[in-house]
Design a protein around this nucleic acid. Structure first.
Length: 415
RNA sequence: GUGGAUGUAGCUCAGUUGGUUAGAGCGCUAGGUUGUGGCCCUAGAGGUCGAGGGUUCAAUCCCCUUCAUUCACCCCA
């Protein structure tokens, strides 16, 4: 399938490691894990992400359930998380709720570097307060996690989108600003002027970008409350020593965002998709989805992008090696090996041996290629005398062991 | 959805201005005497030259179509 990958041990190892780091960081902030289904009712995303967004209007894997219900594969997991928490009555105005998730998301786009149709997001959501300290806590947690990964330089961009009314005012102003300049805009931006005015702000075209620089700033349209919130977030970050950059050009593609929005971008290594994690506050979403009025803030990070960065920055995970490879020298050895291996494996020692008919030399080469730590050659001689030589493939040294009680050779190392 | 690049052995890539049996390195297999790896040496296996069609006496090489991969746009993690 285009944009959907088969993953093997090596790739999976890096992903697991990165995810593990997230769990470590998130748990120290008191977030607990949730998991929701890949399939959700289509209407959930229409109501949350927004009907007119690209994600919903042209990137969803949508289908009809057998009973006719329109369903789809989730393109993101905030909506599903909110749905799940509401269904289980875990969201109330009285208490906070901190959760995180990790799982596959699906968007039918053209794949490119750092963008797949099936991709994995790690995300967290903090419900129940609109205190700026919550924004700071979430960002700090994300920051801590990203810092624990070898992904090169990253930068935190923040902005405030204000409340819906403020944003509406701003959009109006933005349109009146750009309308007279229409002819100078690139064709994409002329279209954006109608469809997605905010996106006009981060056009890569030089002229557009220059004009955008001069455009009104959303920050000037914030009412006192939103303004104070944003100030408090900035102060909080500064107090924790977390560097950030304010950029009025930061916009998000999902409709539900309010006030604080942010993005961690990688300074190199990802090509055009340099956003590594992004999110924002969504104070109205829970209510819009039929729940109580519960403010929240969250983020999602793309695991595949982090893996790319980690690999480019030389993440090297020590591969697991077989503890022992048993090599047969003759038929007697060959007959005994499965039983000997069985005993060791029950003690969780990684043992391997060749099943096909091979020479000792071939078996040795195989053991070497597998990077086995040790080998033991077994033939009539060893079985009868109950004494074999365990050879270290690293040092080449051999040590005598009792074949009938091989386990004892390991007990010191495996206690 | 749009645009560019690429598609030759398991992997990384040469190559033929169209001409009989398509190459290298790495990897793989087997040997280098009797039961011991890594280095070295020798031999070997392995390719519908992405697929389909066209031009030609002849195509892996030229033309068309298609598929796949990849990068970028749109958009986004």
């Amino acid at each position: 399938m285009k944009g959907m990958n088969d993953l093997f041990s090596k790739e999976l190892q890096a992903r697991r490691w990165i995810t593990q780091k997230a769990l470590q960081a998130f748990e120290s902030y008191g977030f607990s894990q949730v998991q929701t289904p890949v399939l959700e009712e289509l209407s959930l995303f229409v109501r949350s992400v927004g009907k007119t967004t690209d994600i919903v209007s042209k990137e969803m894997y949508a289908l009809e359930d057998r009973d006719g219900t329109p369903i789809c594969m989730r393109p993101e997991n905030t909506a599903g998380t909110v749905r799940a928490l509401l269904e289980h009555h875990k969201l109330t105005q009285e208490q906070e709720c901190k959760v995180f998730y990790v799982g596959p998301m699906f968007r039918r786009e053209r794949p490119q570097k750092g963008r797949l149709r099936e991709f994995t997001q790690v995300g967290a959501e903090f419900f129940g307060t609109d205190a700026p300290t919550a924004d700071v806590e979430l960002l700090s947690m994300l920051h801590q996690w990203l810092l624990s990964l070898p992904i090169g330089k990253i930068k935190l961009l923040i902005n405030s989108l204000g409340q819906p009314q403020e944003r509406a005012e701003y959009l109006k102003a933005l349109r009146t600003y750009f309308e007279p300049l229409r002819d100078q805009l690139c064709s994409d931006c002329q279209r954006r002027l109608e469809t997605n005015t905010l996106r006009l702000l981060d056009c890569k075209n030089k002229t557009c970008s220059k004009l955008a620089d001069e455009s009104p700033s959303i920050l000037d349209f914030l009412q006192e409350e939103s303004k104070q919130h944003f100030e408090a977030v900035k102060n909080g970050l500064t107090q924790l020593g977390i560097e950030f950059e304010i950029t009025k050009k930061l916009v998000r593609g999902l409709d539900y965002y309010t006030r604080t929005v942010f993005e961690f971008i990688a300074e190199s290594g990802l090509g055009a998709q340099n956003t590594v994690a992004a999110g924002g506050r969504y104070d109205n979403l829970v209510e819009e989805l039929g729940g109580p009025s519960v403010p929240a803030i969250g983020f999602a990070a793309g695991i595949e992008r982090l893996v790319i960065l980690a690999e480019e920055n030389g993440l090297s995970l020590d591969e697991k090696r077989p503890d022992l490879v048993l090599v047969y020298a003759d038929d007697t050895g060959r007959e005994q090996i499965p039983q000997i291996a069985h005993k060791l494996r029950q003690a969780n020692i990684w043992v391997d041996f060749e099943h096909r008919k091979k020479s000792v030399k071939a078996q040795m080469r195989r053991a070497d290629r597998m990077k086995a730590k040790e080998v033991l050659v077994l033939g009539t001689r060893e079985i009868e005398s109950d004494e074999g030589q365990l050879k270290s493939l690293d040092s080449g040294e051999q040590r005598f062991v009792q074949v009938s009680n091989l386990l004892s050779a390991y007990s010191p190392n495996f206690v």
